[in-house]
Write a protein that binds this DNA or RNA. Structure first.
Lengths: 219, 219
DNA sequence: TGTACATCAGTGAACGCGCGTTCACTGATGTAC
DNA sequence: TGTACATCAGTGAACGCGCGTTCACTGATGTAC
């Protein structure tokens, strides 16, 4: 394919000119449309046909890219976990400048994801999608969680070896509290509950108290 | 209405005999059908028509009891919060035999609800239903949460007055951790994640550590 | 470089389906007299 | 106690709709020669 022409086409699309027979990037366009629809009406209010319409193609076109409606939804969830994992990795930043501060950033990133990507969040956690639906899906989810575990291990390593709590248990606790605050108070959709403080502050205090309970002082 | 006859009708229905022109308890039957459908296919896979079919009435009959599909769903969620509140109240049992033990029971009751009533749980928390959708709904939800707050106040009261943490903040932390564990690991539907221990034990340890962080020792 | 052709990603018409909702109706219930 | 009647909770047929999915097709792309 003529590369210059490709670039020209991309430019055309960007500037809203009429596309030709081929869409060029339908797969991505469908995902984007799905996210928009989920954000507006919840995972239930998303239909294959409407996504096609939003992308400006015939209702049969999506079948070239996804087996069926559920396959698209599963792909949205998988991508969600991938972005989520990337966000968490960036926030953790290898534990810099200090494991505790990095853990705080991790929590903030979790809340920020729930707030700014409510569609991804709902697809990932509230779609009745079995966690082991597909290999790629469960791996992406597992990877995101592994960042939390890694952070907990780094925090445990700050303690004398004979006083360290099990990092695995700790990571589940941190995950649960963060997920609870995100799902109840930080989510970016209509289901968010009111809270008399910033969710970030609630989370920071919660983690601090929990870590103190573990004997991790002097942060 | 003849009371004996009413009792007889109820008996007839119980023994599965043919009902007459009037259903007798359609409202309840529709709620029950909705719960069954939600449990099987998620909140998205529930339709007014199918609920009517399950209750053995024509598709127009439900309109005598609910304005529309969403009204039924909202009623399910409201009832869910009422049952939830009742369960939590029973578990707390006025703080008997000891506030900490009662708090433990409270957490167990939360997890048990998520496990045994996944349909209610999904309708309450994952239906994209705004928390302030209706007065009755938000009151029922608020009441359930107030049990948690009450428990936290009782626990705070065990501490010297000058060391007490704000019970309000504490109740949000307890809620978040419990809700996180329930939603991720204890729920009774396909979205439950595997956990290398009983969710109850994870929660107990988490609460214990958190309380220790607050300075609530000697439990 | 030019051309023939395989492959790919779209079309658009069609289908059967179940849904939500409405309507005029009817049978049962409970009550006023 | 009997009867007439208002009210209530159902019926069932009908509607328009959008959905998911299929099919034979076609236009564009990229490549082999």
């Amino acid at each position: 394919m003529n590369h210059v022409k490709t670039l020209y086409m991309a430019w055309s699309k960007k500037s809203g000119e009429r596309r030709g027979y081929h869409h060029g990037n339908l797969r991505e366009a469908l995902i984007a449309a799905a996210l928009k629809l989920i954000a507006e009406k919840g995972p239930a209010g998303f239909s294959f046909a409407e996504a096609a319409r939003a992308a400006g193609v015939s209702p049969a076109a999506p079948y070239r890219h996804f087996r069926d409606r559920d396959a698209l939804l599963a792909d949205v969830a998988r991508r969600g976990f991938e972005r989520f994992g990337a966000d968490l990795t960036r926030a953790w930043d290898g534990g810099q400048p200090h494991p505790y501060r990095a853990m705080e950033n991790l929590g903030r990133a979790y809340l920020a994801f729930a707030r700014t990507q409510p569609a991804y969040y709902a697809a990932m956690f509230e779609c009745q999608l079995p966690p082991d639906a597909s290999r790629e899906f469960s791996q992406a989810a597992e990877h995101a969680f592994s960042i939390l575990r890694q952070a907990c291990e780094a925090l445990c390593a700050l303690m004398p070896a004979d006083q360290r709590p099990p990092a695995s248990m700790m990571s589940y606790h941190v995950w649960a509290m963060t997920h609870g605050i995100a799902s109840l108070f930080a989510r970016g959709d209509v289901a968010r509950r009111k809270l008399p403080m910033a969710p970030e502050n609630l989370l920071e205090a919660g983690l601090l108290l929990y870590l103190r309970g573990l004997g991790l002082e002097g942060l």
